[in-house]
Write a protein that binds this DNA or RNA. Structure first.
Lengths: 68, 68
DNA sequence: ACATCATGTCAAAAATTTTATACATGACTT
DNA sequence: AAGTCATGTATAAAATTTTTGACATGATGT
């Protein structure tokens, strides 16, 4: 029953002209390690970082992150 | 220019039959202080807590939290 | 007046997220 | 073969979120 948070960051990055982790980290204002950890699902990010990522890709937050 | 995260938790609580902070904290699985802090905007919650709150109220995350 | 309840606040500890460094690997280029 | 680039991993420190416990206030009820 324990729901998990998944994400499509990797796919969104590749759709966005093969953007690198470092580029995304820079535009979002976090370290590359943070992007790596979130992509790999090591932990779920803060709501603020989540919103920033969604804003950058120009999609609703739920397109980037799913709670299922 | 710095965007902020706002929320409608208080209104959603009252719409939900005047639910108390403690009741929401219990169903979401956090402490009442966490609800107080988020409601008052002391800090933005983790994405997981945000999703749990939205799930409880049965609305999309963006109905509870706005990035503006 | 007294008790109860919901909310607000405060402070310190615990837990989690984020950063900073460093190093390893495979893919690609020259 | 050597160099560069993107990614993965690891660890400790820093920053932020969350908990715990305690106390104050105003509103409500008895």
């Amino acid at each position: 029953m324990a729901k998990r948070i998944t994400n499509n960051i990797r796919r969104l990055r590749f759709d966005a002209d093969e953007m690198t982790q470092q580029m995304l980290a820079d535009v979002v204002g976090v370290s590359r390690q943070t992007i790596v950890a979130i992509e790999k699902g090591k932990y779920s990010p803060s709501l603020e970082v989540a919103f920033k990522i969604a804003e950058y890709f120009n999609v609703p937050l739920e397109v980037v992150f799913q709670y299922q």
